[in-house]
Each structure stands twice: as C-alpha cells, then as structure tokens.
Amino acid sequence: MSIPELSPEQARARVAHGAVLIDVREAHERAGGMAEGARGVARAALLAEPAAHLPAVDGEILLICQSGKRSADAGRALLDAGYSNVSSVAGGTAAWRAQALPMVQPLQSDAERDFNERYSRHLLLPQVGVTGQTTLLASRVLVLGAGGLGAPASFYLAAAGVGHLRIADDDVVERSNLQRQIVHTDASVGEPKVLSARARLLALNPSLDVEAVQVRVTSANIDALLEGVDVVLDGSDNFPLRYLLNDACIAHRIPLVYGAVERFSGQVSVFDAGRQRGVAPCYRCLFPEPPPPAFAPNCAEAGVLGVLPGMVGLLQATEVIKQLLGMGEPLVGRLLAFDALGMRFRETRLRPDPACAVCAPGRAFAGYVDYAAFCAV
C-alpha cells in the first residue's frame, strides 16, 4: 500500500494549517537538526503506541525521516492501524535542508550532544547503536605496552569510545619510536610513554578515563593490572611477558588479543582459553616453548616497517571492540598472518592442545613461573 508524498515546501505549508509533523528518526539522528515544526518520536516508539503521540485517527499526519524511506514505511503501518490521513515527506530531512527551509536544533545537554555527534557513525550501525556505544563507554581494557602495537590500538580504542583504558608500560619515548608509535610526538621524547599516551588520548577524547601505569609488568603486579578488566590487548615485544600475560588471562578468564610484528610481517589472534577450556587454544598451544633468541629478534634488533605495527594494532583494536560488543566472528582459534611486502593475509586454524600445561581441561592453575628463565632455556 502506497501513501501520499509531499514535497518539503508542501509539508511546511500543511504544518502551518495544523498538520502534525513527526520526525521518526532516532534521537541521535535528530541531534543534527530537525525540520521546523516537527516533533521527534522514533519510529519504533511511534508504532508501538501511536495514540500517545498522534491526534485522532482522521487527523492530518505528516511523517519525515532522513531520506523518505522510513517515514513511508511508518506511514503504511499507521494506515494499517486505522489512521486515514497520513503522508510522507519526499526526500526527508535531507531534501528539507537542501531547499534551505528552516531547521531547529533539539534541546540537548552538553553530554548528550557530545555523545550524539562524536559517535554518530557508530550509532547508525545496527550492530552498535546506542546500546552498543553505551556498552563501549562502560568497558575496561588493559593495553599492555604503549609502543608499536599499543600506540595505534589505544588511539583507535579511545576514538571508538572505550570508556576506561589502563595502559601499562615502563619505558620512555625515544625519537626512534616516532616512526611507528603514532600516539607520541617529538615533544614527548624523554617522557614516560604512558604519560605521553594519556595526554594524547585525552586530547582526542576528553571524556574517557585513561589510567597510566608506569611499571614493568611482572608476576607480582599482573593480577592487580587485570582487576576489573574486560579484555586485554597484548602490545608486548618479548616472550617472557607474552607467556605471563597468557597464563594470567587464563587464570582470570579474560580474553587476550594477541599481536606481534617483525620486519615486514605481523600476526594477530584472540586467545580465550580461560572461558573456553578445551575449545579455544591459548598462546602456549601455539608456542609450547619459546624459540631461541636468535630466531626471535625484537624491533630494535631486526627493524620493522613503520606502518606495519599500525596495521596489526588496528586489527587488534577491531578484535577488542568485537569482544566487548559480542559481535562478528572473533579470531579465536585462528591466527591471521600479514605479509606487507606481498600484501597478503593468511589464516591458520589453531586447535587447543589437550595436554597444554596451562589451559588443558581440568588442569588447575599452578601459579606463575620464572618466565625469564623459562624463555632463556
């Protein structure tokens, strides 16, 4: 069933003669401006209880959305519900604005305006929306390392509105870092990385809680760092810390988003064995023993293409957001490898090791070990 369509000029004239104009967009969409004379009632709320928002069933009702589709759909639903005089504004608010007709700004608090404007593109995604964005703002993520991986990952997590970021690192900014660690600037050289990162992230998104923890992460403080955390992002650059973080995340049942880079290649995975024993592998299932140091040089020894940590860090940030929102297919049980020179991605399936020393089903957590000694051997 089709409903009549009016041009924005015609709709404005009808409003002047008593017609009721309803903007059926969501509140965050109306925040950018509404047609003068319109009342904001989201489509779902309008159709759930039309009598609460509309005049008598024979009163003149005009509906407007962004482009005209949702208002037409809502109009057909109202006709089915018994309303006999319903029209839709052709082209919606976009056409109204294009014709330079009067617009009004709905009343909002400063916090509401910031939320609606800052996260407007997230709010348009059905998989995120207001509920998902609110979830992100209430989430807590530990970013271990403010270097090559932690820098781009934390930058995008802050931009996405992850409400609490705890960043742990004991290093200071060096000029050689700036080729890839984009959260730092030349003025930050000599400053603790966590403080430099905190200042830059708050400059990007002042409403966040960014906790700068300037410590060397060890078995003695890892439990405190994981307290209250929803997801951990591993931006470390050495094997002892990776094994420690893996074991701690299993013990605390927290998903671990892993990343690593070397020269022109990188890899990403999600280890969630703490919550999915016997189903999801852990880092030890992939690397039961660390490779000899000669086969695992760090960036200071082997070098790294400056953009590569950005690629891997962004993939890690994506996996963190997916974990927080429970959407998509996470990289659990999959290792994604990236070759920058060939511009190729390769996926390898990972299976849990039934004899894993840490995550095997029924195996009790034996406590932390001397990870430096373990990796040296």
Rank of each mutant, 00 (worst) to 15 (best):
S2R: 14
S2F: 01
P4F: 01
S7W: 09
A19G: 08
D23F: 08
G37S: 05
R43W: 04
A44K: 11
A48T: 06
P50L: 01
A51S: 14
A52R: 14
L63F: 05
L63A: 00
I64T: 13
S67A: 15
R70V: 00
R70W: 02
A72G: 01
D73W: 01
A77R: 12
A77D: 14
L78E: 05
L79C: 12
D80S: 08
A81Q: 15
V86T: 00
V86C: 00
V86L: 05
S88Q: 06
A90H: 10
A90T: 12
G92E: 08
A94Q: 15
W96L: 02
R97W: 07
V104H: 07
Q105M: 13
Q108A: 02
S109A: 04
D110F: 00
F115T: 06
Y119S: 08
V128N: 01
V130I: 13
G132R: 03
G132W: 08
T135C: 06
L136K: 10
R140P: 03
R140I: 12
R140H: 14
L144C: 12
G147M: 11
A153N: 09
S154K: 05
L157M: 07
A158V: 08
V162A: 04
A168I: 08
V172R: 12
V172F: 02
E174Y: 00
E174W: 00
Q181Y: 06
I182A: 02
T185R: 15
T185C: 04
E191A: 11
P192N: 04
V194H: 07
A199Q: 14
L201R: 13
A203E: 15
P206V: 03
L208F: 10
D209I: 10
Q214V: 00
Q214H: 09
V217A: 02
D223S: 11
L226Y: 05
V229P: 09
L233K: 08
G235Q: 06
P240E: 10
L241F: 06
Y243G: 12
C249I: 08
H252E: 15
I254S: 09
L256F: 10
Q267H: 10
S269I: 10
F271C: 06
D272Y: 04
R275K: 13
Q276I: 07
G278R: 05
V279T: 14
A280Q: 13
A280G: 07
A280E: 13
P281N: 04
P281A: 01
Y283K: 07
F287R: 10
P288C: 05
E289A: 09
P291H: 01
P292A: 13
P293V: 13
F295Q: 15
C299E: 15
A300E: 07
A302S: 13
G306D: 12
G306H: 00
P309W: 03
V312Y: 04
G313E: 15
L315V: 07
L315F: 02
A317E: 13
Q323K: 13
L325T: 06
M327W: 12
G328N: 11
G328Y: 05
E329H: 06
D339T: 08
A340P: 08
L341Y: 01
G342D: 14
G342T: 11
R346C: 03
T348V: 15
L350A: 13
R351C: 04
P352K: 03
P354C: 05
A355R: 03
A366T: 05
Y368S: 05
V369K: 10
D370V: 08
D370T: 02
C375R: 03
A376K: 02
